[in-house]
């Protein structure tokens, strides 16, 4: 089927070198740093607090902050368990391992001031979701933590839409966030709009929503027809993979070959290292069969336990990119 996907392009880009125009591309209430989620609370980000039960909202300025706690689905909305660390007069942080959040698909949370008051996000925040308790809407918002695809200024895929300067709001929506129409707000840059996401290697479809109007990416020729008779833009996010073959130091020529190059016997000549042989290439997400050709002898990867038969009863090594 892979052959049928025409014009597959890849956007594996080293973004560190890009100058990112200072705009807020972050989700409210947290950021992701390596394998950690850092919950972040800045006093300036909130105008109002609310209280359980009835009563008016209070202005934030009227409160003296004694402590800030992260409360959410991950700790059963406890108002005292996850206390944050004070960084400076306005900022609080709490670090948690991202692996603790991978076993759940959506996490809603909020900040609690002085173990009592909920800091209320505003409608403008990108990652809000209507708060529901016992089946009814509470008329306030929770913040949502996204651990699948997420905006990240050091991410691997940059989406840009040129022009539309008069637009008020541009959203990126796609299969990476199951066509959510709110979360991935693009920010203005000099000639248009931009957002940078961290995406796992895979194929994705996406569209832009410009002030409520859906459109494909005009600069991406790779597109697929959707069920509405229009087009979704398509990207294939790839990842760099390095193959190693230990030993075989006396070999003269070692070739890496596999389904990724149609088992070409010459294309990927491996380089000699201290321990053996190595070759690095960019691969699409999914499963790849491969083998090494050591001086014309085909060998599977002795250090990889993952193997499969091909249709003819030969055993290939398998590399999974995900």
């Amino acid at each position: 089927m892979k052959q049928l996907i025409l014009h597959s392009i890849y956007l594996f880009i080293a973004l560190l070198s890009f100058q990112i125009i200072a705009q807020n591309n972050e989700m409210k209430g947290y950021r992701i740093e390596g394998d950690e989620i850092v919950f972040t609370f800045n006093k300036e980000d909130y105008n109002e607090v609310s209280h359980d039960g009835f009563g008016d909202r209070k202005r934030f300025d009227d409160l003296t902050i004694e402590n800030v706690v992260v409360a959410g689905q991950f700790n059963n909305w406890s108002k005292d368990k996850w206390q944050m660390k004070k960084i400076d007069a306005d900022n609080y942080e709490l670090r948690k391992k991202i692996s603790d959040f991978n076993d759940e698909f959506s996490w809603e949370f909020k900040f609690v001031i002085n173990n009592e008051y909920w800091a209320e996000p505003t409608r403008k925040d990108p990652n809000i979701v209507g708060a529901i308790k016992d089946g009814s809407y509470l008329n306030v918002y929770n913040l949502k933590l996204l651990t699948g695809a997420y905006p990240d200024k050091n991410g691997n895929v940059r989406f840009r839409l040129k022009g539309h300067k008069e637009a008020k709001k541009v959203i990126l929506s796609g299969t990476f966030n199951r066509w959510n129409e709110k979360t991935f707000k693009m920010y203005r840059i000099e000639n248009g709009w931009e957002i940078i996401l961290r995406l796992k290697p895979d194929e994705y479809q996406y569209r832009f929503i410009v002030d409520g109007n859906w459109m494909e990416d005009p600069t991406n020729p790779d597109k697929v027809e959707n069920e509405f008779g229009e087009y979704n833009s398509h990207i294939n996010v790839k990842e760099r993979v390095t193959f190693h073959l230990n030993g075989y130091k006396n070999a003269e020529k070692v070739i890496l070959t596999g389904t990724f190059n149609n088992w070409d016997e010459n294309e990927y000549r491996m380089e000699k290292t201290e321990k053996g042989w190595t070759y690095s290439l960019v691969l699409s997400g999914g499963k790849h069969h491969y083998k090494f050709i050591v001086d014309n002898n085909w060998v599977s990867d002795p250090d990889n336990s993952v193997k499969e038969y091909d249709g003819k009863g030969n055993i290939n090594s398998v590399c999974m990119v995900k």
């Binding site: 689905q73 991950f74 700790n75 059963n76 909305w77 529901i132 016992d134 089946g135």
Partner: peptide, 17 residues
């Protein structure tokens, strides 16, 4: 070891906590 409350929707469209 309980950790949190979850809302689940079953195939019968029944929401349970």
């Amino acid at each position: 070891i309980p950790k949190k409350q979850l809302n689940l929707v079953g195939a019968g469209n029944r929401k349970i906590k």
